[in-house]
């Protein structure tokens, strides 16, 4: 198929940036979206132009490195996929495709479609862990039975890949789905209880300091999340936060 791409080009963080048109031809429906971008970049290199910068790595939907806002949706029109798993069969011959970076105050553009998501790392550093040293002397893994339902729910929350689609999708650029998933994983497990109160307060504070917006319950994040992280994680985050604040000595 032949397509017209309208791609955000921005040389550096300080550059203003603009949309640029690129035609691509002979695209197979079996290609992944990023393989289509590879074809474009090879064409640009052959013409002596600079290829489009975009983040990607595992190309199997788990590392969370790829981003891109495609036709107004994070990770494009398919559901339950990252951009690297999006295939060209979702488009048709003659389509015009708009490709932009994830946009949020806390995700500044580095170049073209590549953005800086280190704010997510800093939120995790603020409390996204259990304080246990690597001694090898921890108790036996089966010492505390954990109800299967709790373990499964914790696992569902833990599957978040930290891509930032929730933030890019949210009209408030809120990171509540991301933070909710992380807080939930630990809140659902007995190992996470000891530090639960401090954890949620620290992570929420860092989230606010980074410039992410608040949640107004539109639910768009849940729809666009490539891993199907549920909105109930935001509810659990709110509950954890309120109870921590209510009982907090600070």
């Amino acid at each position: 198929m032949n397509l017209t791409l309208k791609i955000w080009r921005q040389k550096s963080p300080k550059d203003q940036g603009k949309m640029v048109d690129y035609p691509v031809s002979d695209i197979s429906e079996h290609m992944s979206f990023l393989e289509m971008m590879d074809v474009l970049n090879e064409t640009l290199i052959a013409k002596g132009e600079e290829p489009v910068a975009f983040d990607h790595d595992c190309r199997e939907g788990i590392c969370g490195m790829c981003s891109m806002y495609i036709n107004g949706e994070a990770h494009g029109p398919d559901r339950g996929v990252t951009t690297c798993q999006l295939h060209m069969r979702k488009f048709k011959d003659g389509d015009t495709i708009y490709i932009e970076p994830f946009r949020a105050k806390a995700f500044p553009v580095i170049k073209d479609l590549s953005v800086d998501r280190s704010s997510f790392d800093r939120i995790q550093q603020a409390g996204g862990y259990i304080s246990v040293n690597t001694s090898g002397n921890t108790q036996d893994a089966n010492a505390i039975p954990i109800p299967k339902d709790d373990a499964d729910l914790a696992m569902d929350a833990a599957t978040c890949i930290g891509c930032g689609a929730c933030v890019a999708t949210c009209k408030n650029s809120s990171a509540m789905l991301f933070v909710g998933a992380k807080v939930s994983q630990y809140a659902l497990l007995p190992q996470g209880q000891v530090e639960a109160s401090q954890r949620v307060q620290n992570m929420v504070k860092q989230m606010d300091d980074e410039g992410f917006g608040n949640c107004t319950n539109t639910g768009a994040c849940e729809v666009e999340c490539p891993k199907g992280i549920s909105l109930t994680n935001i509810a659990r985050l709110n509950r954890e936060f309120l109870s921590a604040k209510a009982s907090s000595k600070n």
């Binding site: 690597t134 921890t138 108790q139 893994a141 299967k148 373990a151 696992m155």
Partner: peptide
Amino acid sequence: EVSTNIIDQCVAQGVPFARDYGGLL
């Protein structure tokens, strides 16, 4: 020899391994 320590360590860190209905790994 150290393989068993890994599982203990990871569970202590909150890694959500699959469990059976009795709550064990």
